[in-house]
């Protein structure tokens, strides 16, 4: 029986040689730059690999070191989790709510607002303008504004004070996070068959919010799942904005995320084995969070 299935598949594979040829270029680069790095990081995480000498097996030493003996790692891990827990949901719901509100408007206004909300995602290097706004001297726009209003008497060191730095980075991150998920939600709302709304109204759905929660969202399962993946990737991959605004390292490592720490260890200090162990913790964390969220969405929506 199993042999039959195998032969059947073999024949199918042979009949579809062209398919494999067409997929081949993608698979080649996909393996080289996504799959192999992820798999290799797992194996290298048990070594002391440093790119200069050949790797030596060290067991779970790297993992012990990071959790028991590395305050910066613990700080970066908790920063990453806090950051993801705060900005992930905010950006996800911002994408959803803005897409929902925009969907009601006339096509022209909708197109303009789509552009406005998506614009920050496109302007990769415009973070620098936020540095002017949050600048720590009185020339900073926010400081001068607050001083004029009399809210603060001294300029606030927004980007160096550990109390304000993370909040600033979060604000800018949310600003720049209405990306592919936002576009897919807009498209999702537009493809919903409007007759379901009429039926819902007859069935006693009283207001728009109820309609959104009970009728629309369950129909948008696939978009909601896609959006979740994209926002998780963005939230856990945070670091670039912190580095652009506050530099690296930051005061008391307040702005250090895992991505920044890994990149520092890997490309500056060549502690590849250790950096790979951290990468692997990050991968595992992301897959775990993703699975939880996908399960929740699947329970409440038809996909």
């Amino acid at each position: 029986m199993r042999k039959d299935l195998f032969l059947h598949n073999l024949k199918k594979a042979r009949d579809n040689k062209v398919c494999y040829l067409m997929v081949f270029p993608f698979l080649l680069f996909f393996l080289a730059f996504t799959i192999i790095p992820v798999v290799a990081s797992f194996f290298l995480s048990f070594t002391n690999y440093n790119m200069l000498e050949s790797a030596r097996f060290v067991g779970i030493e790297n993992y012990i070191r990071m959790f028991l003996d590395d305050d910066v790692f613990i700080k970066a891990l908790s920063n990453t989790i806090i950051f993801a827990v705060v900005t992930g949901p905010i950006s996800y719901f911002a994408c959803l709510i803005f897409a929902w509100l925009i969907n009601e408007l006339s096509p022209t206004v909708r197109a303009i607002l789509t552009f406005v909300f998506y614009a920050p995602t496109m302007s990769g290097s415009l973070y620098v303008i936020w540095a002017f706004i949050f600048s720590g001297d009185s020339y900073g726009l926010l400081n001068s504004f607050l001083q004029t209003l009399g809210v603060v008497s001294e300029p606030v060191q927004w980007l160096t004070d550990t109390k304000t730095l993370v909040t600033c980075v979060m604000v800018v991150s949310v600003w720049a996070s209405l990306g592919a998920s936002f576009l897919s939600f807009i498209a999702g709302f537009q493809t919903i068959d409007t007759s379901v709304y009429e039926a819902a109204a007859i069935d006693g759905i009283r207001n728009r919010v109820e309609e959104l929660v009970r009728i629309t969202l369950p129909l948008m399962g696939p978009q909601l799942m896609f959006g979740a993946v994209m926002q998780i990737a963005g939230a856990f991959g945070a670091g670039g904005i912190s580095q652009a605004l506050c530099g690296y390292p930051t005061t008391d490592d307040a702005g250090t995320t895992l991505v920044l720490l890994i990149s520092d260890l890997g490309t500056e200090r060549y502690e590849m084995g250790y950096a790979c162990a951290m990468s692997f913790v990050l991968f595992a964390l992301m897959i775990l969070v993703n699975n939880i969220i996908q399960t929740v969405i699947r329970k409440h929506a038809s996909t």
Binding site: L265, G266, M272, S279, L282, N290
Partner: peptide, 13 residues
Amino acid sequence: LFVGPITAVPAFI
């Protein structure tokens, strides 16, 4: 899930 910055270091190798 594994966008650029997340796999950057292993990809570097």
